[in-house]
Design a protein around this nucleic acid. Structure first.
Length: 913
DNA sequence: TCCATGGACATTTTT
DNA sequence: TGTCCATGGA
């Protein structure tokens, strides 16, 4: 594909003077590079503007990743930097991985030698480990995740004598996270803000927490950046090394950066002041060798050793400007402003080649500290910045793009882009009203099957992988899961707890952590009584007391105490046994492969057994996860390497090859695209979410609108929006007004439909408050023509072609969903979705079943080929756990679950145990 | 140690 | 409504 640098030796000359022969030669060569000719002019500008700050405003689907990766390839290919001189940061591991892969494809193995491509956090760790001592850590420090963090904080809160009911540790954790996101150390937190927690003890607790982390030789996620910033500020020479090293900086999703990340980037992106211009311009010794890329194998960072930095004066503050830090923020509520104001004026420093790519219209993480301001202010922060707008969308068809653009145009305070496409108009954005969330799910299920049927009639395929349901809040997912289980529609829920956040994984890791690092008190604490060994609070308290008195880790305290008779015999024996086990494992660590060791530990500790004995529904899944964990260890060289990576880099594996509909939140959909996107739940209160409106006012509304924009722009060919007039929230039915966003969609790009199942009686009397009763509060909002058209259709629907009426004539809503499930399959006509769907998808989904249908009428609901399950079979279901089959009806099983009671499910969702 | 009970809680999520 | 948590009794 792209020209490999092998053919062009990577050397790093000083920047060619303008007009120089080398420059002209380079330019000539660049003009016909194959990877450039594929780009549109804007993309090309973004790739080729190598010098000075560049902001690439990349709208949805405009080839953002492509620009980033091509730019890296171009830098390398032009010989402007060695791979190890490029800093490329992303937010997620996924994005980093994708970038690595794509650069690798363009440039070959050189990408392997890009040690500074990764997430903010992973690069932060890398830097911190090299200079850990300078910030009071050892280089093998542990990275704490949220769970550990809260446990530490809880202890501190209790030590302060605060009621942890009234002052929950998790709230404090959130506060501290927020402060760290804003780049605030304990001293810098605005006093009023810190005082709001724990009767004014917020600041004290934050300070104590930081101290405790140092004692534990640990850093939390926020520290990975904050401590880096502190390191840089206190050790100008360290900073200088990195400034010299990173000749090019690239940042992905710049609109999501928080203040700490911004500060971090700012520090790194300043070129070293004129004191050493040579150093700035000259390649680093290694890169200057002009060697072939292969030389970059191994550690390409010679001449950059820790030792070099140790004799630096740590006390002098390099940048007086920083001294005025955010602590004395004039506006406490937004301390970040002051933090930024404290930066040296950008014009005083020579800006380096930093390229930030982002889209202000896709900033949806304000609530977790992202500062849209960072991107809005870019050219102010980086004077002389070149701004490139990517506005040509390669993803969505015309109507979809137009609708999304019109929607986002309602936001103020944006940099403004106009997305355009040269694609056909395609389908209009469909807006469908449903009576309630169940009907919404039903209608969407049917529509998916309908699409598959139609595709099949055309001899095509509508793969389920190309269908996504994007919800605002995760509770909405349930309805779809329930429905799809009934339909036998394969689905995949994306999001939820990550693999390494699961309790069983964390427990297992804790064992490994103690073996690897006996001083890891947190890990030890976690598993000392898991599985139950009779080492309860009393025993733990004793350990703590001893450990504190003698200033030793808990494991040492345990060893000492189990040898004395201070403890009662029972816990003492238990403790001794445990400590002996740890001693044994520690020895085995030296001889056994680490995955084998892990297996031994899990078995001998009784941990595996604990779950084997557990009768709850998810026990089987947990054991499976443990196996997966052990399996995944093979990929790492040793235990340390594994532990090092797991907290930062380990992703949930989704090596799921089966075609399935994706169900996820709008937030987790960012960056993805699908042919067909369903967007349910567009109701006031849910979307835009009330809480967002209440807490953030107009800013909140705008962020919600951006979320809507993100949602629509995920779609390539079909975007289908739904709203439900009634939704059960916290068990109570509430009637909802359709989302204001619906009326912000231009009519000419929208098609208003009624729910496929018919919404008989929508808006008619009898069913509690009609939506129209509530419209007054929004005044004329819903008097738009499109909206009225939608209203007119409402009365006409019926139950004509699908599904049994779910609302009995007297207006009482039957909430027994199990009853419906039974109706569907047994007594009354099943919804349309259960007729053709199976048949058309037979090839892939369920080869053995082919219901006979004529014109959508179900003739034989029990299909010829029967299920391979028999009454009495013991089965396991992902959601409901274990149970016994009590009835078989075609592919539908009635199962008496041990925990969940009797349910009807499609047999492909269960497996025999 | 296990189980029952009651209360609080119920956006969005990465590292 | 339903889930998760802490608490307290057996």
């Amino acid at each position: 594909m792209a020209e490999s640098p092998r053919s062009a030796p990577v050397s790093v000359p000083p920047r060619p003077a303008a007009g120089g022969i080398a420059a002209r030669a380079m330019a000539a060569r660049a003009s016909n590079l194959p990877y450039l000719t594929d780009l549109n002019p804007e993309q090309r500008a973004a790739v080729e503007t190598l010098d000075g700050p560049v902001l690439v405003l990349a709208g949805a689907g405009t080839g953002k990743t492509r620009v980033l990766t091509t730019r890296i390839a171009h830098i390398l290919n032009m010989g402007r930097a060695h791979p190890s001189q490029i800093l490329a940061v992303t937010f997620t591991n996924k994005a980093a991985r994708e970038m690595k892969e794509r650069v690798g494809m363009m440039v070959g193995a050189v990408a392997e030698g890009m040690p500074w491509m990764g997430t903010f956090h992973s690069i932060g760790v890398k830097i911190l480990r090299r200079h850990a001592e300078m910030v009071g850590l050892k280089s093998d420090f542990t990275i704490l995740d949220t769970d550990d963090q809260i446990r530490v904080l809880k202890q501190l809160v209790e030590a302060e004598g605060l009621d942890d009911k009234r002052w929950p540790a998790r709230v404090l954790a959130m506060l501290i996270d927020g402060w760290k996101n804003r780049g605030l150390t304990p001293e810098q937190v605005p006093a009023g803000e810190a005082a709001s927690f724990g009767n004014g003890k917020g600041k004290k607790l934050y300070t104590a927490y930081q101290e405790r982390l140092k004692t534990l030789n640990a850093a939390d996620f926020g520290d990975l950046l904050l401590e880096c910033i502190r390191l840089f500020r206190q050790n100008p020479d360290v900073l200088k090394q990195y400034q010299q090293r990173f000749r090019f900086i690239l940042v992905d999703e710049y609109q999501d950066t928080n203040v700490a990340q911004y500060l971090w980037l700012r520090l790194l992106s300043q070129n070293v002041p004129s004191t050493s211009p040579q150093a700035a311009a000259q390649p680093s010794p290694l890169a200057g060798e002009g060697g072939s890329p292969e030389q970059s194998e191994g550690e390409p960072d010679e001449g950059f050793e820790l030792a070099d930095t140790f004799d630096m004066p740590a006390s002098t503050d390099p940048s007086p400007a920083f001294a005025a830090d955010a602590a004395q923020a004039p506006s406490p509520a937004r301390g970040e402003e002051s933090a930024q104001a404290a930066l040296p004026s950008a014009s005083q420093t020579h800006q380096k080649n930093i390229c930030c790519v982002g889209d202000d219209d896709q900033s949806i993480y304000g609530w977790r500290g992202a500062e849209v301001d960072n991107i809005l202010r870019f050219d102010h922060d980086f004077p002389g910045a070149k701004v490139v707008r990517l506005e040509r969308n390669y993803r969505s068809t015309g109507h979809i793009l137009a609708a999304a653009s019109a929607l986002i145009a309602h936001n103020e305070g944006r940099l403004g882009k106009t997305l355009r496409t040269e694609d056909e108009l395609g389908e209009k954005v469909q807006v469908t009203g449903a009576w309630d969330s169940e009907e919404e799910a039903r209608a969407i299920g049917e529509e998916i099957e309908q699409m598959q049927r139609e595709a099949r009639d055309r001899g095509e395929d509508h793969p389920l992988d190309e269908v996504a349901i994007l919800v605002r809040a995760s509770f909405q997912m349930r309805e779809f899961e329930d429905r799809f289980i009934q339909l036998g529609m394969p689905y995949r829920v994306i999001g939820g707890p990550r693999f390494y956040e699961r309790a069983e994984i964390r427990d297992a890791l804790a064992y490994l952590r103690v073996v690897a690092q006996p001083a890891d008190d947190l890990a030890f604490e976690r598993i000392v009584n898991t599985p139950k060994r009779g080492l309860g609070d009393a025993a733990l308290q004793m350990l703590h007391d001893y450990a504190r008195k003698n200033k030793v880790p808990l494991t040492e305290a345990a060893r000492a105490l189990s040898a004395t008779d201070e403890m009662k015999p029972k816990p003492r024996t238990a403790l001794r046994t445990l400590m002996e086990s740890f001693g044994r494992w520690a020895k085995q660590k030296e001889t056994l492969p680490h995955n084998e060791l892990a297996e031994i530990i899990l078995d001998e500790s009784g941990y595996t057994e604990m779950w084997q004995k557990d009768r709850s529904a998810d026990a089987a899944g947990r054991l499976e996860n443990l196996k997966e964990l052990v399996r995944s260890m093979e990929e790492f060289e040793n235990l340390q390497g594994f532990l090092e990576h797991i907290s930062l880099v380990m992703d949930r594996d989704s090596a799921d090859n089966e075609q399935a509909v994706s169900i996820m939140t709008l937030h987790s959909a960012k960056g993805l695209e699908f042919d067909t996107v369903f967007l349910p739940g567009w109701e006031e209160g849910l979307f835009p979410h009330q809480r967002s409106l209440d807490d953030q006012g107009r800013a909140g509304l705008e962020e919600e609108r951006r979320l809507a924009h993100v949602g629509i722009t995920r779609a390539r060919k079909r975007a289908k929006i739904y709203f439900a007039a009634n939704r059960r929230i916290h068990g109570l039915w509430s009637s909802n007004v359709p989302s204001r966003f619906l009326d912000e969609l231009p009519e000419e790009h929208v098609e208003v439909k009624e729910a496929a199942g018919g919404t008989g009686g929508f808006g008619m009397s009898g069913y509690g408050p009609s939506r129209f009763d509530e419209m007054g509060s929004f005044g004329s909002t819903y008097s738009t023509p499109g909206w009225q058209r939608a209203q007119q259709r409402r009365g006409k629907g019926g139950f004509s072609d699908s599904g049994a009426p779910r609302y009995v004539p007297d207006g009482v809503f039957d909430q027994d969903s199990d009853a419906y499930a039974d109706d569907d399959a047994a007594s009354s006509p099943p919804p349309l979705s259960e007729r053709g769907g199976r048949a058309q998808s037979a090839g892939r989904l369920a080869p053995k079943r082919a219901p006979l249908t004529i014109e959508g009428e179900l003739i034989a609901k029990s299909t010829g080929a029967s299920s391979s399950f028999k009454v009495g079979d013991r089965v396991f279901h992902q959601k409901f756990g274990n149970g016994n089959v009590v009835n078989v009806d075609g592919n539908k099983l009635t199962i008496a679950f041990d925990k969940a009671g009797e349910k009807r499910v499609v047999d492909s969702f269960v497996e025999r145990v």
